[in-house]
Amino acid sequence: MTFDSSFLLSIVTFAYLAASLAYICLLVFKTKFFGPAGTVLTLITLAAHTGAIIWRWVESYQLGIGHAPFSNLYESLIFFAWAITFLYQIMERIYKNHVIGAFVMPLAFLSLAYAGLQPKEIHPLVPALKSNWLIAHVITCFLAYAGFAVSAGLALILLLPRGRESISNLASRLPATGTLDSLIYQNIAFGFILLTAGIITGSIWAQQAWGSYWSWDPKETWSLVTWLVYAAVLHARMVKGWAGKRMAVMSLIGFASVLFTYFGVNLILSGLHSYAT
């Protein structure tokens, strides 16, 4: 086994698992120590993760086919995990609550674990993928997906039954419903802006590459569905005052649509975005 960026990423995967466990321990046992431990572990791992992405970029240049590491399912999953961790860390800095990590960091771990199952070779880019709009498209879309992922994690916390005996002990450590509600909304708003930017950059790229900014390809259509769902969520909140549990449920529905856009379309439907083949 050579020590390359993929190897470093498999270490990063296990480090995220450890960080997730630390956050979960904080939730289950009251020991304060686990909070900062999870944070420190996550931050170190995030640095290594960033390094590994840059390393993979360099490796592609060493192969003489240099391109940004955002070109296949493996690379997109790595960036997805990076974006989730990055967003979560920002949130943790602002809200100083470590417990949320127990619900968010496992998502980063799962994304990397799934990446571990994908082919890892660096392939030269087909001509259609050689575009700076592609880089903008992938970065915006996956930051959006990360925002929606974090909001779904928060939604799960909000939906935990708080009244019960077994949970009430946990509940004392969970953020207040009001805080969760506003965090869910902020992450959805963040995701909505970036998804808008992602669809727009994707359209511009499609117009340049294929001469058509919109062609109702299944992946495009599903991203529009996701966008419509979150637009509905924003209106329901802004104008109808939806909040709390309703927002949480809508956030989970929206995230289900994200997951289908990301994975389901590749597995079940076919189209231009044949990441996973």
């Binding site: 109702w216 299944p218 259509t221 599903w222 529009l224 569905v225 419509l228 769902v229 637009a231 509905a232 209106h235 329901a236 109808k240 379309v265 439907l269």
Partner: peptide, 17 residues
């Protein structure tokens, strides 16, 4: 607006299947 957004989403989904 909410009704239309949801109907459009569902119709779009149908077209992908």
């Amino acid at each position: 607006a909410l009704t239309l957004l949801i109907i459009l989403a569902i119709a779009s989904i149908a077209g992908t299947f």
